[in-house]
Simulated assay, not measured.
Amino acid sequence: MKNLRTYLPPILWGVLAIAVLILWFRPNPNTSVAGPSEPYPWEVAEQAGLPEAVSGQTIRALPLPDTLYFAGERVPLEDPDVRERLDRELHVNTFFHSNTIFLIKRANRWLPQIAPILAQNGVPDDFKYLAVIESDLQNKVSPAKAVGFWQIVKATAKERGLVVTREVDERYHPLKSTEAACQYLLQAHNRFGSWTNAAASYNIGQYGLDKRLDEQQVDSYYDLLLNEETKRYMLRLLAIKLIMENPETYGFFIEPEQLYYPEETITMDISEDVKDLVGWAQARGVTYKTLKRHNPWLRQKDVKARRDGKPWVIALPAYAHEPIVATDSLSSD
């Protein structure tokens, strides 16, 4: 009898091979790929207590508050335009999940440090959310060269007492730049008599807002016809305020250990020119990277002494130490 392969066409051999593979890799009907006790995603959401609007496989519209205030001033939610603009920003920022999660994490580190500075300067606490929408609480640089948490341009920084040189740019200092922002906001409030208008002017400028209020013969930001960016500005600020004050209402469940916290630091002074900040940091037991993490306002690998005779105050991690050598050979004579 001739070999069976002689009589079977190649295609039949292919069919037989596939059948064998299917039988070989067939899953056990008594087992589950996910495991017998593993719940479905929507069951996890329900067990976690997620609100109906953001749980399960169905995404529902978020409710708007009946009343809302910013810096003690009532938001006119009875105005359909204002209400719909808030509705948009609330949904955009709620469902922009990854970005908003990191805003909440960073806010836990920075807002408790920013809030006391606002209070000391007589600026309402709600303005801490302005830093959030300006920069996501990061030292960003805008296309217009506005810098830092508060997005301050160079000319304004110098007007408000911040040092901006080749080696140092205090716009990158989150707390010193907060002081400068307070000066601006107080001036804007004195000009407009409204914290809402003061906040809006932070985006469009005091002159720009004043001009539009005069042209359109109104007194309130909410009554102005504005460009898209400024039209959304205050409503995004309000949406972030709502989400950060009530994160679980909008589906953000972040465990305390997952938040970012202020890091324990000590301070050391620099009163002389330092030609090599890499070596200066290493002599104190830290890396240059760590030095820059805590002092992003140092812009070069060297720094000159302040002209006013005051020292530069440098933040370092708690484990840093004074140089072991008696004389700091890294400073110029």
Rank of each mutant, 00 (worst) to 15 (best):
T267N: 11
S271W: 13
P29R: 10
D79F: 00
V168L: 05
T265Q: 09
V325R: 14
K275G: 13
A53M: 12
K275F: 11
I240E: 01
A17P: 04
K289G: 11
M1P: 08
R293M: 09
S201P: 02
H189C: 09
G122E: 04
V153G: 07
R83D: 02
Q151L: 06
Q206D: 13
K158F: 05
I104N: 04
K128R: 15
D169A: 02
Y129L: 00
S32E: 13
W110Q: 03
V303E: 03
Y172A: 06
Q57F: 14
H173Q: 04
R171V: 02
S37D: 15
E89M: 13
F149N: 04
L64C: 04
L185D: 01
I152M: 10
L209P: 01
E228N: 14
P143E: 07
L4A: 10
T94Y: 06
K241P: 02
A188V: 06
P29D: 06
S55D: 10
P262C: 03
E134Y: 01
H173V: 05
T290F: 08
A199V: 06
V33A: 13
L90A: 02
D269R: 13
R85Y: 06
G279M: 13
E43N: 07
I152V: 12
P262V: 05
F252V: 06
L259K: 11
L86C: 05
L12D: 03
R60F: 08
D87H: 13
I59R: 15
R284C: 05
E159G: 07
T67R: 00
K158C: 02
G72D: 07
E89K: 04
H294E: 09
Y221K: 00
